[in-house]
Design a protein around this nucleic acid. Structure first.
Lengths: 202, 202
DNA sequence: AATTTTACTGAATATATATACAGTATAAAT
DNA sequence: ATTTATACTGTATATATATTCAGTAAAATT
């Protein structure tokens, strides 16, 4: 999608805020009032620019006929929370789902698939504490230094990822825990995904 | 909340559907078209009934000025993110607001007023890292062990709170930092609020 | 039995609103 | 170098829209 100018961003923010506040979109005059414009045509032309760039649609002739595009409006959804149990993989199967919590798409910088409820303190020095919810993006494409969800047979752990050649090192962020060395081809070894965010509910 | 008649339910559903479809509320004429009424006053009086029963609010004089009540539509809101700068208190003044992020009411167990962007590692051992967003509830009622936002003159810090008698101890969660001892009556000392949650965006 | 609420039609109207037109000026793209 | 996009002010206007008033009629409430 085409980039917006600073003023266009302001107008778009203004529309979002107005809808949140009132429940319906602003008129040209409302936008002028909010942003200090003195002519309704200032708002009009910004709206047409936003329309042209695909951020909104405008129903011609309708009052307040502004509609935020799907990309523009943050949709609220629910996302599952999965318990990190010693035996049992974090799948999206019903029996593993602790609960669903609401979230906004743009909460984190990257999108993600589920929350993992952390047990234990093996990633303490990375600021990941017991009962934290780690946002996990399901992917096997991980890079050195990523915090990953690794499965070894039925055991699931959250660790730093470090690979060199054929060997993978899973490094805890806590001196009380040991590093795990494993070969890429090991039967039952699998990278479930990586951490892209965290929520602490206390 | 007072019960709705079948027709009133139809009108309410019509409004919800129209908003979902178009992004903005219907006019009286729109409702008539959708439900087959021949007079705009049919819609008008239904709207006033819905308003009277608390399902919607109507902004008088505004076109499409229909707003679904909180009970009627669960709205998502935005909450400000405030930078924790060495000099300058975390107020909700515009100049301190980094950005707004969307959130759902039930994201954390407690409600809160703003997010504080963490600078430095003074609370590292509590799992609070640089650039984390700490959810702050504005209150001066804090208990020993709470993580609080304390202001001393223009300096704002995030620390564990510990009080005994008239003396307050502000304890970092990092051995590299020193504890702060202060009297309750100290001029310029103030508890801004306490941490009730955390978000890490990486 | 009397009153209020619901559920409309139909007509009228003040005003809220989108939108076009005429300008000015600067920045960006071709 | 010329065109296009950005970023407005200011005026004007057709029409989209809320809203009031006058009725009719059945159902629910008091």
């Amino acid at each position: 999608m085409k980039e917006l100018t600073i003023q266009q961003k302001k107008v778009l923010q203004c529309i979002k805020f107005y809808i949140k506040k009132t429940g319906f979109p602003p008129t040209r005059a409302d936008i002028c009032r909010e942003l200090g414009f003195k002519s309704p045509n200032a708002a009009e032309s910004h709206l047409r620019a936003l329309e042209k760039k695909g951020y909104i649609t405008i129903e011609n002739g309708a009052s307040r006929g502004i509609n935020l595009t799907e990309n523009t409006a943050e949709k609220s959804q629910t996302i599952p929370v999965i318990g990190l149990v010693a035996a049992g993989s974090p799948t999206l199967a019903d029996e593993n789902i602790e609960k669903h919590i609401p979230y906004q798409e743009s909460l984190f910088l990257s999108d993600f698939d589920y929350f993992l409820r952390v047990k234990g303190l093996s990633m303490k020095d990375a600021g990941i504490m017991e009962d934290d919810l780690v946002a996990i993006k399901k992917t096997s494409e991980v890079r050195n230094g990523d915090i990953v969800v690794a499965r070894i047979d039925d055991e699931v752990t959250l660790k730093y990822f470090q690979s060199s050649g054929n060997q993978i090192k899973l490094i805890p962020a806590n001196d009380d825990f040991d590093e795990i060395y494993i070969s890429k081809e090991t039967e039952g070894f699998f990278i479930e995904g990586k951490s892209v965010g965290l929520i602490r509910e206390n």
